[in-house]
């Protein structure tokens, strides 16, 4: 198996706060990795380190066999990394289509506007936002803005996609449709790391899961193993029976 991403001993402090402690994992191409843990565990911070928003205090990141430690966000974008934001960040005064075109224009493939328009239309149809293409991004509701984040990231045709709580704040039917979208993305060969609090969904789509707690990696394994891990149950899941409930298929 070729490794798309290798994270080695990443440590990040904010003043006295230890946000990440020696986080280490390998991510093979084509997998979905779930990243879970309580609020403030350091999940978003880990994304911010991987995509270059924060420099790590210690540790290294390799992406496609290249040491990318200390790369800036725009350099990571050009290497083929894209992400969504936990708190959506639409380009409000631009149209939905222009938002997605920006994803296609400045990312790895560096397209011109003409090609970017084509890609934007395709991706918007894929996330079912094509009806809104000519509206301003500010006019979308939260669920639609989440899909816009997704579309913008996908338009860059990334090798690795970081999804930060794309299901948060969605109703059950919206969650189901978003989970379908995530599965479809994987079918296209895109590797994904997914931060999620909606346990059922993350257990359902992930090949593997890592659990963070106070910046420490307390567990790693298949969804089955994680759901039955006593440390995870204590730190995060709470109810031991919850695990079984989560793992049932509807």
């Amino acid at each position: 198996m070729t490794m798309l991403l290798q994270v080695e001993g990443i440590t990040k402090r904010f003043g006295g706060l230890q946000a990440l402690t020696k986080v280490t994992f390998d991510l093979p191409e084509g997998q979905i990795l779930g990243l879970i843990g309580p609020n403030g565990a350091g999940k978003t911070t880990l994304f911010n380190v991987i995509n270059g928003i924060y420099a790590a205090d210690e540790g290294r990141v390799h992406f496609r066999n290249k040491n990318v430690t200390g790369y800036k966000p725009y350099e990571m974008a050009r290497q083929g990394l894209a992400r969504t934001h936990q708190i959506v960040r639409p380009l409000n005064e631009l149209t939905v289509r222009e938002n997605v075109m920006a994803g296609a224009c400045f990312g790895r493939e560096n397209h011109g506007l003409g090609e970017a328009t084509k890609i934007a239309n395709e991706v918007l149809a894929f996330v079912k936002l094509d009806g809104k293409a000519d509206q301003l991004a500010s006019s979308l509701n939260v669920a639609q803005k989440k899909r816009l984040e997704m579309a913008r990231a996908l338009a860059a045709r990334p090798y690795l996609l970081l999804l930060d709580e794309v299901l948060a704040g969605l109703n059950p039917s919206e969650i189901a449709s978003m989970v379908e979208i995530v599965k479809n993305i994987r079918e296209q060969g895109v590797t994904i790391i997914m931060i999620e609090h909606v346990m059922k969904a993350v257990m359902n789509v992930s090949d593997r899961i890592i659990v963070l707690d106070y910046g420490q990696q307390i567990a790693e394994g298949t969804p089955q193993e994680i759901a039955n891990d006593p440390k995870v149950i204590e730190a995060y899941l709470g109810d031991p029976k919850l695990a079984e409930k989560l793992m049932e298929e509807d």
């Binding site: 995509n51 928003i53 800036k72 966000p73 725009y74 974008a77 050009r78 894209a82 992400r83 934001h85 960040r89 639409p90 380009l91 409000n92 005064e93 631009l94 222009e98 920006a102 994803g103 224009c105 400045f106 990312g107 790895r108 560096n110 913008r152 860059a156």
Partner: peptide
Amino acid sequence: MAIREDEDAAEVMG
């Protein structure tokens, strides 16, 4: 215009 709307998000896009 992407910078105007959100400079950090623009940088993340490349």
